[in-house]
Amino acid sequence: MAKSITQEFVKGLWEEIPPFRLVLGLCPTLAVTKTIQDGIGMGVATTFVLVCSNVLVSAMRNIIPSKVRIAAFIIIIATFVTVVELLMQAFTYPLFLSLGIFIPLIVVNCIVLGRAEAFASKNAIMHSLADGLGIGIGFTLALASLGAVREVFGSGTFWGAPVFGPSFHPFSFMIEAPGAFVCLGLMLCIMNLVGKK
């Protein structure tokens, strides 16, 4: 582990950006990216859980017996997810309504458990913090870009404001579930084209 803290942070933004490179966390990626707001809201919530659980798991990595580590990780993650859920209900209720069931489902988001198991349980606190933050921001960026594409084509708006003239007829296929798959597939394809050089 010769990587510096900055390297751990940066890798989450491009090299290991979750839905596009790791192809993890697809359930929220497909389900809540109807608009860019929803995408960012989901990304921020996941980032919060990711950073907190990474730090705590890393701090407790020498205390938790390896036989029950998954159970312990899940307790930690579920706690933070419930914290996010309660805070969202209290302060950003409309966002909570539009994300719905997908907030509690962050518990089973494989990115969060994956980082806890694969990274935080083996690395120091600061490294884990940087890793969680990097991956979280990468996830947010991915969700926001997918949400932006789907919102612009699917409803003709960007952040709620119309981008095309009134003669535009929204390509409503894009904001439906199959559109999410097609759109994600095309973005993966573009990522591979750009990354391959």
């Binding site: 007829h169 409503s172 296929f173 894009m174």
Partner: peptide, 10 residues
């Protein structure tokens, strides 16, 4: 099929 889902009216 995709066009039908998106632009039924047209």
């Amino acid at each position: 099929a995709i066009l039908t889902l998106s632009w039924k009216n047209f």
